[in-house]
Design a protein around this nucleic acid. Structure first.
Length: 434
RNA sequence: AGAGAGGUGGCAGAGUGGUCGAAUGCGACGGAUUCGAAAUCCGUUAUACCUGCAAGGGUAUCGGGGGUUCGAAUCCCCCCCUCUCUGCCA
């Protein structure tokens, strides 16, 4: 959620940013928010004044009542009459206050609803564009392998080596919930450990958060409102299965004023992630390309505003290093305005080359949300003069497992099995699948 | 799941209708004392919003919402959460 002060003071920048996102109703919405804000403030002033008067009268009445004690009957009667006169005025005020409060609440609610509609303002480096086709390739790394004739896509390889079983998952749960078996299961565990160790070496503190979160957490990071349909929901207890550990790990800092010496916050965590993927279909979602449940190691940073873009670059570099260690060909994309997530100001996607499918697969998305999440989270620090200020939140996958596995399987297939990259050997306890 | 207790400032903890944003203690910060430190003493120490160039002023907040009242941390109603015991259980 954007800050009102930003809409007010940087209207032109906001409108230009929203245009980059092809946000059609920007001008009208921003104007409506500013109008509501003006109205809200006027109402607040009136309301406060009426309330102040009422408080003052109550004090006077209180004083009269106190004085009445230990007095003659005449004095008591006199004071009571005075008090009753004041009560007439407070009755009027009460009506006014009630009316103001209702209007105020309505204006605030309208304003919040509108603010929820407005996406984050893209960073100046974000390219214009409508779709994924307009994303900018920042750099590429690694070398695409030459596969022998008859190379198989990963959904064939997992059957050939019997390491991931979709049919079994369907039996016990449903489509998109694969069962990892034998070397497949061990590879999962190896990757999680490898990623966590790498993150720790890079200075991130490991946390293990719950994978069900309450509604407030959903609002905090922006999954709610509007994206309810993407999350599994336990209606009985009103809890959501997390779509990413960004949600619990970032919400650890909801409603916090973080002391300066604790900044920047750098956390990493492994969790399974759950996505309903309502409406997804087609060849692109075959095999491991899109699942309802998958494993992911996440990195999260919370920094002071002036440091967030430098931190962002280090996060991207960290993910790149992981891909280099895994010897996977990759590329780094800067997402265009039309393809960027609602809450992000700048997102780099990292994609790996899936050789048998002959396509790039997104394995990480590293975003700077600036104050967009922090504003909802009320995640602050003390800036100059002891004033509280919003922090910047960032997160990135480091990494999501299924597509990494897909690329590892496809790219490293040989007649003698799948040769895993060196770094995984000790983690797996084997060097070849097959 | 059943029974009971309880939710107050960074923490602990008082406060059962009036000047209470809230005693006291601890912690933290600033100062005095000291060669320095401990101890001691003095002071400061919540958040949000409105208003103001500022200094300041105002309003709200004692788990959340509603109600009674001139006036609510305090009384009433609903909801949420936590703890203890019993039950169940990795």
């Amino acid at each position: 959620m954007l800050q009102i002060s930003v809409l007010k003071e940087q209207t032109a920048r906001v409108l230009a940013g929203l245009a980059k996102r092809n946000f059609k109703t920007a001008e009208a919405d921003v104007q409506a928010i500013l109008d509501l804000d003006q109205r809200r403030r006027a109402l607040q002033t009136q309301h406060d004044a009426a309330q102040a008067e009422a408080n003052e009268l109550a004090r006077q009445i209180g004083g009269l009542m106190q004085m009445s004690k230990n007095r003659t009957l005449d004095a008591f009667t006199e004071n009571k009459e005075k008090a009753d006169a004041l009560k007439l005025r407070t009755a009027e005020l009460k009506t006014q206050i009630k009316a103001h409060a209702d209007e105020l609440a309505a204006a605030e609610q309208q304003q919040t609803q509108l603010l929820y509609k407005i996406p984050n303002i893209p960073h100046e480096s974000v390219p214009t564009g409508r779709s994924a086709d307009d994303n900018e390739v920042v750099r590429e790394g690694g070398t695409k392998p030459e596969l022998a004739a008859g190379a198989l896509p990963h959904w064939e390889l997992i059957k050939k080596y019997d390491i991931i079983d979709f049919e079994l998952g369907i039996k016990i749960t449903g489509a998109g919930f694969p069962v990892y078996k034998g070397q497949g299961a061990r590879l999962q565990r190896a990757l999680v450990n490898f990623f966590l160790d790498q993150a720790r070496d890079a200075g991130y503190t490991e946390v293990q958060p719950p994978i069900l979160v309450n509604e407030a957490s959903g609002y905090g990071t922006g999954q709610l409102p509007d994206k309810e349909g993407q999350m599994y929901h336990d209606a009985q207890d009103n809890l959501y299965l997390i779509p990413t550990s960004e949600v619990p790990i970032t919400n650890l800092y909801r409603d916090e004023i973080i002391p300066a010496d604790k900044l920047p916050v750098r956390n990493t965590g492994y969790t399974p992630c759950f996505r309903r993927e309502a409406g997804s279909w087609g060849a692109d979602v075959r095999g491991l390309n899109r699942l309802h449940q998958f494993d992911k190691v996440e990195i999260v940073q919370i920094t002071q505003p002036e440091n967030s873009y430098a931190a962002h670059e280090t996060m991207v570099a960290h993910v790149e290093q992981l891909l280099q260690l895994l010897k996977l060909p990759y590329r780094v994309l800067r997402l265009c305005g039309g393809d960027m997530g609602f809450t992000s100001a700048l997102t780099y996607d990292l994609e790996v080359w899936s050789a048998a499918q002959g396509r790039w697969l997104e394995v990480s998305s590293v975003s700077n949300f600036e104050t967009f999440q922090a504003n909802r989270l009320k995640c602050r620090y003390r800036g100059e003069g002891g004033k509280t200020q919003l922090l910047h939140t960032l997160n990135g996958s480091a990494l999501a497992l299924p597509r990494i596995v897909a690329a590892l399987l496809e790219n490293n297939q040989t007649p003698d099995g799948i040769r895993l990259p060196q770094v995984l050997h000790s983690y797996c306890g084997f060097d070849t699948i097959g």
